[in-house]
Simulated scan of single mutants.
Amino acid sequence: MFRFQEPAYLYLLLLLPILAILFFYSIYKRRKAIKEFGDPDLIADLMPTVSAFRPSFKFWVLFACIGFFSILLARPQFGTKLETVEKQGIEVMIALDISNSMLAQDVSPSRLAKSKLLISKLVDELHNDKVGLILFAGDAFTQLPITNDFVSAKMFLSSISPNLIERQGTSIGKAVDLATRSFTSQEGVGRTIILITDGEDHEPGALEAVKRAVDAGIQVNVMGVGSPDGAPIPVTERNGSEYRKDNEGNVVVTKLNEEMAQEIAKAGNGLYVRVDNTNAAQKAITSEINKLTKTNIESKVYKEYDEQFNVIAWVIFLLLITELLIINKRNPLFKNLNKLFK
C-alpha cells in the first residue's frame, strides 16, 4: 500500500515543465546569438574549454533534485511496519452475555444494545491496556483475543447478536473459565474480567469458575443489565411488538438476577454495579479497574504506513554531490575524459 502523507506538496512538480521550457528557450537564444556573431564551428574552435554538454547535464541534475525534493516534502509512505512498544497498563477480558433475554428492553434501547454501547465507552478508557472480548450464552467463545487493537475491538460490536450462539442459556462458568485462560503469560500484570449479564436462567458452576479465576490472580467484576421487575423478550432484536411465549402461550418475562450477580462479584473480589440508562455503571467500573496494578506491557503495534523519505533524501544528496563535482568548463588535464563530454 502506498500513499503521500502531504500530497499538496506534489503541486511543486508543476514547476518542472516551466523550468524545462525556460531552459530550452535559453539554449535557443544562445545558439541564435552565436549564429549572429559568426560561424558556430569556428567559434567552437576558438573556445576549446567550453563544453556544450556540462551545463545541460548540471541543469538536468538540478531539475531532478527539484522533482525529488517535491516528492520528499509530500512524505511518501509504503507498506507496513511492526513495532514493539512497552506501556504501563493492565489486561481486561470482557465477557458479554448474548442470550435471548438480553433483547429485553427494560434498559433503553435494549439490554444488548446498551451493553455494546457500554463496552465501546469502556474501551475508550483503556488507553495503554489490553482488551479481549468473549461472547456467551449456553456456550462461550472468543470473539476477540486479548489485544491493544481497540479499533478492532469496537468494530466487532456491531455484528454481535444472539444468533451467534445456537445453544441458549447463561453459562457464566464457561465464560469465566475461557476468560481466565485468555490472558497473556506475562507476570505481574493487573488482570480483570468484566462480566456483563442479566444472570437470567444461569447454569451451575459460576462461583466455582470465579474462584479459579481469583486463584489465578484475576479480579471479576459484574455489570448487571436489566431490572429486577423484568421485561418481555422481543422475538427479534429489531421487533419490539411480538414477544416470546412459553408452552402455555404466556409472555415470557425476564428479570435481572441481581442476587446471583452480587455473589459472583463478591467471590471475585470485584465490584457489582447495575446498568441503567445513565453512564454511572461505566464510570464505576472504570474507576475500579484503574485501581489494578499497572506494569510494562509489551505490545506489537502495526503501523499501516512506513516512511520512505530516507531513500529519496539519499538520491537528492548524491545528485547534488554530482552537480557540485562537475564544472562547466572542460578540464585540459583530462583530455581523454573530455572526449566523453563533447
Rank of each mutant, 00 (worst) to 15 (best):
M1Q: 11
Y9D: 09
Y9L: 09
Y11A: 14
L13E: 08
L15Q: 05
A20V: 06
F23I: 01
Y25S: 08
K29Q: 14
A33D: 12
I34W: 09
E36M: 14
T49I: 01
S51M: 03
F53I: 01
R54T: 01
R54Q: 05
P55G: 08
K58A: 09
A64F: 06
C65L: 09
F68V: 11
F68L: 15
L72P: 03
A74G: 10
Q77H: 06
Q77G: 04
F78Q: 14
Q88T: 03
I90R: 15
V92C: 05
M93F: 11
A95E: 06
A95N: 07
D97H: 00
I98Q: 11
A104E: 05
Q105I: 02
Q105D: 09
P109R: 00
P109S: 05
P109E: 00
L118N: 02
V123L: 10
D124V: 03
V131A: 05
L133W: 04
N148W: 11
D149V: 03
S159F: 10
I160H: 06
I160V: 13
I160G: 10
L164F: 12
I165H: 12
E166Q: 15
A175K: 01
A175D: 02
A175W: 02
V176T: 03
D177T: 11
L178P: 06
R181I: 05
G188T: 00
G190C: 06
G190W: 03
E200Y: 14
H202N: 12
E203L: 04
E208I: 02
A213C: 04
V214W: 08
P228Y: 12
A231V: 01
G268I: 00
D276S: 06
N279Y: 07
A281Y: 05
K283I: 10
A284D: 07
E288V: 04
E298N: 07
E298W: 03
K300R: 15
K303R: 14
V311F: 15
L319Y: 04
L320C: 10
I321W: 06
E323S: 11
K329D: 14
L333M: 13
F334Q: 11
N336I: 01
N338T: 00
L340M: 11
